[in-house]
């Protein structure tokens, strides 16, 4: 069951990612990216990271992608802009060859160690365990991230408001 879920979700994640990169229209790119992000959320669920599954759906596939789609619609790109903005052939070829080389090298490294996961997750990924770690050992980082989010919010408003 988990194996089938893994293969389905990884196929969807990779297919969505490839479509994101290759579609000419940024709106179809964004929608493919949503598919990929939801599939990664499913992969989190197979890793018994249930809280991350929820957060990924809410924050990433929900909030962030709504923001992206909103900006794409505000900009309202014309057809002629998109024609020059497709995948540029020489660059794409170069980047693909380079990443295929990296893929082959690292695939050999990973194939060496096929460690199986421990069968029992022992409550890993439950909200209790995550919250305990987050509000004790990682309290300082948590506060720093909240300041970062505030700064990002103010920065985004100032950047988008100002007339350059």
């Amino acid at each position: 069951m988990q194996t089938i879920a893994f293969w389905v979700f990884s196929f969807l994640a990779v297919a969505g990612a490839v479509l994101t990169v290759t579609r000419k229209n940024p709106l179809s790119s964004a929608l493919s990216l949503v598919v990929s992000l939801v599939a990664v959320a499913g992969l989190f669920a197979t890793l018994s990271a249930h809280f991350l599954f929820a957060i990924q759906l809410l924050v990433y596939a929900g909030a962030v992608m709504v923001l992206v789609i909103y900006v794409i619609m505000i900009l309202n790109l014309r057809e002629r802009d998109m024609r020059v903005l497709g995948l540029s052939r020489p660059r794409a070829a170069l980047a693909s060859v380079a990443s295929l080389a990296v893929l082959l090298v690292l695939a050999r490294v990973f194939a060496g160690g096929r460690t199986a996961f421990p069968a029992d997750a022992k409550g890993l990924g439950s909200i209790e365990e995550l919250a305990t770690a987050l509000f004790t050992r990682y309290l300082l980082q948590f506060e720093v991230v909240s300041v970062l989010l505030l700064a990002a919010m103010v920065g985004a408003v100032v950047l988008a408001m100002r007339k350059f």
């Binding site: 988990q2 194996t3 893994f6 293969w7 990884s10 994640a13 990779v14 990612a17 490839v18 994101t20 990169v21 990929s36 990664v40 992969l43 197979t46 890793l47 794409a92 980047a95 693909s96 990443s99 295929l100 990296v102 893929l103 690292l106 695939a107 990973f110 194939a111 160690g113 096929r114 460690t115 199986a116 996961f117 069968a119």
Partner: peptide, 21 residues
């Protein structure tokens, strides 16, 4: 459950596709 290396491969492929993008 698939082994850890399968997840790492998916992660690697996603990373490289993003990199190409």
């Amino acid at each position: 459950m698939p082994p850890e290396s399968h997840y790492l491969m998916v992660s690697l492929v996603l990373f490289l596709v993003g990199c190409v993008g």
